[in-house]
Design a protein around this nucleic acid. Structure first.
Lengths: 231, 231
DNA sequence: CACCCGCGTTGACGGATGTCAAAAACGCAA
DNA sequence: TTGCGTTTTTGACATCCGTCAACGCGGGTG
């Protein structure tokens, strides 16, 4: 029996739609792996050796300059696909933000399997197009929004993306959630410094827009205000 | 005889690799169009009705806020594919920067054709993955680079991208080229203001790194210096 | 040739955000 | 509980870049 049978993202990941025989084959070239929070899975500019499906947990995709500045260019949630198929090197590092479980494939094996299964390539294409859309709207944020607009947009996005985690089935956006990011990582997502992020959080708290029960917890008290601020 | 026979991007666009019968079919659902500089081809948030191949010219992909701030999120050159297949709305407007010729398809027709031709979908996937890589490295620029790093990176990218245009076959990066952007558009690519762009250009000129023969012309005098500045 | 209009440049100034440093809060383990 | 190391917050200050305004250049037109 293949471990895919019990996979919680079986129907949401790109594997969805494959028949039993195909799943069997895919299963035979992939393997489960756990990644602990902070542990890297893929290195920037490395030979792109791995691709993977996220089963559980959250991972960040980052690029860095030589002098150590970092920008988070993407965030992968359960059922997301990570890595760079059909290419020699990956343009981003992948590091776990929380403890995570992934289903990894050697890039070569995956490429070969994908080329033989157009339906899977189609799913991958749809995902990649959607990711490109998201990335482009994030460029708008990075290039043209100020600090408070960035923070408001970020909190709304988090509240959407984290809606389904926390055991509640997706009932619209989450009012209260636990950030998978440290303050520094929030800064790395938004192109800000940790101090500016901290000040903006404090300001929103003082203005009664959000509550901050603990370092990682956020509760949205006035969603309308956030939407207005996000611009 | 199909107009594809004489198409200058026939071997570089996603059409490459299709056999004669397939080209015939594709040709029957597409049509040539010219777009004059400044003219829009696709509207942001519009129903995504069109997709297209760029034959000649340069086009910008932009997103805007309600209050009129604009961010250029992509630039399309000859043989590039534009538009959003397999989705209801497009997340960016497409506007011609120069007079351009494109080969347009109704999204529905194209989607149907693509789903029946895995090889074409594969090409589209490879392109989309490459575009995502480029977009992510641009996020690094927007989020973490300062004005002079942005300008230096931009000039180097232009010199690479515009290498083949101007009739010379691609002999490495162009030393001298004509920008398809106004100063305001350069600002919209880099997340800066027109004044900052202008000042940085002047500074590079005064430092002997570049020459500016006219408003749109750029000549790189000291490429090494640009590379160092780009960071 | 002169005029005009749009685009680009330059200057003066202010403010948002980055930088540096110290204090505070938190999490964890003994 | 206490103590320690890390993360976060807060404050003072610096600076880069945006804003506003004036000027200049260049191309097109009468």
């Amino acid at each position: 029996m293949s471990s895919c049978d019990t996979c919680v993202v079986r129907n949401r990941a790109i594997c969805a739609g494959l028949d039993n025989r195909e799943i069997e084959t895919l299963n035979s070239i992939g393997r489960r792996r756990t990644v602990t929070a902070g542990e890297p899975l893929i290195w920037e500019d490395d030979d792109s050796l791995l691709v993977a499906n996220v089963i559980e947990g959250v991972l960040k995709l980052t690029t860095s300059t030589e002098d150590g500045r970092e920008q988070i260019v993407g965030v992968a949630y359960p059922s997301d696909f990570i890595g760079r198929p059909f290419g020699q090197t990956s343009s981003a590092s992948v590091v776990a933000l929380t403890d995570a479980r992934v289903c990894v494939f050697s890039r070569n094996d995956f490429d070969r399997f994908a080329r033989e299964h157009p339906e899977l390539e189609h799913k991958l294409l749809e995902r990649t197009l959607a990711e490109l859309d998201r990335t482009r709207s994030w460029m708008m944020l990075l290039g043209r929004k100020n600090a408070s607009e960035k923070i408001a947009t970020f909190l709304l996005e988090m509240s959407d993306r984290l809606a389904e985690t926390g055991c509640t089935p997706a009932f619209g956006p989450a009012r209260r959630f636990s950030l998978p990011f440290s303050r520094q990582q929030v800064a790395d997502v938004l192109g800000l410094t940790i101090e500016t992020v901290s000040r903006q959080f404090t300001k929103l708290k003082n203005d009664g827009v959000i509550e901050l029960p603990s370092r990682r917890e956020v509760e949205i008290l006035n969603r309308g205000a956030l939407v207005a601020l996000a611009g």
